[in-house]
Amino acid sequence: MMSAVWIIAKRELHSFFDSLVAYIMLIAFLGFTGFFTWLFGGDIFFRKEASLQVFFGVSFWTLFIFVPAITMRQLAEEKKTGTIEMLLTKSITDRQLILGKWLACFLLVGIALLFTMPYYISVARLGDIDHGATLSGYLALLLMSAVYISIGIFASSLSNNQIVSFLVALLIGIFFHFLFDVIASGTSGFISELMTTLSLSSHFESISRGVLDSKDLIYFISITIFGILMSEFVISKRN
């Protein structure tokens, strides 16, 4: 018997690929990151070292925008068309539904990152790449996506309008992406420390540079779980 989470995730992945969302997302992501990594401005050839740091920097921003675009319809659309009622009156819990949706988005991002493997291979053939740092860079991108997917699904649970969900996800995301950092540098003492702790970018940077600290891992995992629990809470208040 397949688990309900996987059944939901599988359907959602199918729907990504059937509705062109997946292809648009893949082409745009690869186009964007490819252009800025290989062709434009301070690209990878100016680095004088074999590393994918440029790519990670570009992806840091690309995924920030793209993740809300794939999460926005997850629950909003189900609520709008009423299919959420059909789903939740089957043998499935609210949590399994949310986790299934989350997993589908996460796998789509994973697939997109998998397609950047040629970047890795190319750079590795050009010079002496630091494999550890590169892998942890990918890990940082996955962890960041996990957080933003979780936030995006929460945003999607709040409304049955996809655009609203997208904007809410971006709005919450902006705080994690750089506003907490900005506030941290403008304040001092406890507030500054708190903001630095909350800021996603500082945790992202340390992992993407190859420093694996359990504190950073706990940060990403706990925010992801928090987002999922919040979505579950919102969905359970359906009357």
Binding site: I7, T81, T83, E85, M86, T89
Partner: peptide, 29 residues
């Protein structure tokens, strides 16, 4: 819910799914 078959009001369905796939999806759920 395992013992209940429910047809909600307004019959919400996934319009982008083929009938067979949809039934399989519901059966596995």
């Amino acid at each position: 819910n395992r013992y209940i078959g429910y047809l909600p009001e307004n019959n919400p369905l996934y319009h982008d799914m083929p009938v067979i796939d949809y039934l399989e999806f519901c059966a596995s759920l």
